[in-house]
Design a protein around this nucleic acid. Structure first.
Lengths: 206, 206
DNA sequence: GCCACTATTGATCGCACGATCAATAGTGGC
DNA sequence: GCCACTATTGATCGTGCGATCAATAGTGGC
């Protein structure tokens, strides 16, 4: 119980310390939200002085934006990895949706929602948010376009459909943040809506 | 140009002053977001000292929550009023969706999004958000249920469908906050998804 | 016309934030 | 083993926040 107050942080290589700080910022963002990523909070989490955090991050807006990007893009990678197991576009999309509606994803949803709000005053973050949204949209658009090519899906505007799918998923997830419960219908209903959007027979997407 | 510094606020009846403060808070929320509704900002906007705002509001969490509720419930009333002109459930739903996708609604969308984020640290607001969401859901559920009764819609869970519709609309609107443009497809695509959810032929909802 | 009542204020507290900078203390290379 | 280099710190500034409270100044009722 004697280690409440840390004496002095061990000297580390800059790269290592930087990674450590980024990691701490990430943890805080995931379990307390992006808004909790503060100079002092990150410092405390990393067992270091606020000054040191400031030394490694050009400014907090940047650190927050980078933390956001790190979390959200890592998730995109994960999902794409998971999805890559399937060959058919409809199967890939089904896996993607299934994953995005998984329970344990609340933390990332919070990050998204907060990014939309914070982005209105943190332009650095706003830019990162736009970039991340574009990346997600492109990934989904690719699946949709592949499905169109293979004859699985029917639409004349894969880009717009991708935006729509993402919006629907985010919206329903965000809603679940505040008013949770009803996760059962949540999944099946939205899948049905998506099938319609893609010109599919009911049940095709799982 | 001489009125930069206000000498002293005219003495007013408590009810009038309270209304004035609430109105100022509302204006600030609508054009700078809920997060900008601050003791000092409201005071400045109302031409009054922070202490006076504090005198009328029990605390800021309450004022913010009340401001949120005021904005969001007023919008619900407006929309219901507008929709009441139609008799058929499908026509009412069509009007509702059309209205919610209108351009000038960005400000209210910002309030919603910010409420989801702020609600995680302001429990008073969180409660207000849940209440408002329930109110909206019930309103939509009523339309859906009416449609089912009249044979216009087909679903065995109007409540879940209502949640879904609201989620989709909010999601797509929130997305438009950051990544705007493509408002054209936005409307028609989501309407198509909704038609599918309600077992309607394409085009029924406008 | 006066005065009790009360709307309004000024001053001030404590807190958390981002940021800066000179001083300090480890350590790798010689 | 020493020392130059630099990772780390402590102290501190300025800002904005919510909140409190005694003092002040309008005004409605008599």
């Amino acid at each position: 119980m004697s280690r409440n107050v840390r004496k002095r942080a061990a000297r580390k290589a800059p790269a290592e310390r930087a990674a450590e700080i980024a990691g701490t910022a990430r943890e805080i963002a995931l379990d307390q939200g992006l808004g909790a990523v503060t100079l002092r909070a990150v410092a405390a989490g990393a067992g270091v002085t606020p000054a040191l955090v400031a030394h490694y991050a050009p400014n907090m807006d940047r650190l927050i934006a980078d933390t956001f990007t790190g979390i959200v893009m890592a998730e995109l990678d994960d999902v794409l990895e998971l999805v890559s197991g399937e060959t058919a576009a409809s199967a890939r999309l089904a896996r993607l949706v299934e994953t995005l509606f998984d329970e344990g994803r609340v933390d990332v949803t919070v990050v998204w929602v907060e990014s939309w709000a914070l982005g209105r005053r943190n332009t650095t973050l706003a830019e990162a948010v736009r970039a991340a949204m574009d990346a997600w949209q492109q990934a989904v658009e690719k699946i949709v376009a592949d499905g169109v090519t293979s004859g699985e899906f029917t639409t004349d505007d894969p880009a717009a459909v991708a935006w729509q799918l993402i919006g629907m998923i985010d919206g329903v997830n965000a809603q679940a943040l505040v008013r949770w419960g009803r996760s059962a219908e949540r999944g099946s209903l939205i899948v049905h809506a998506m099938e319609a959007t893609l010109g599919l027979r009911a049940g095709t997407l799982r």
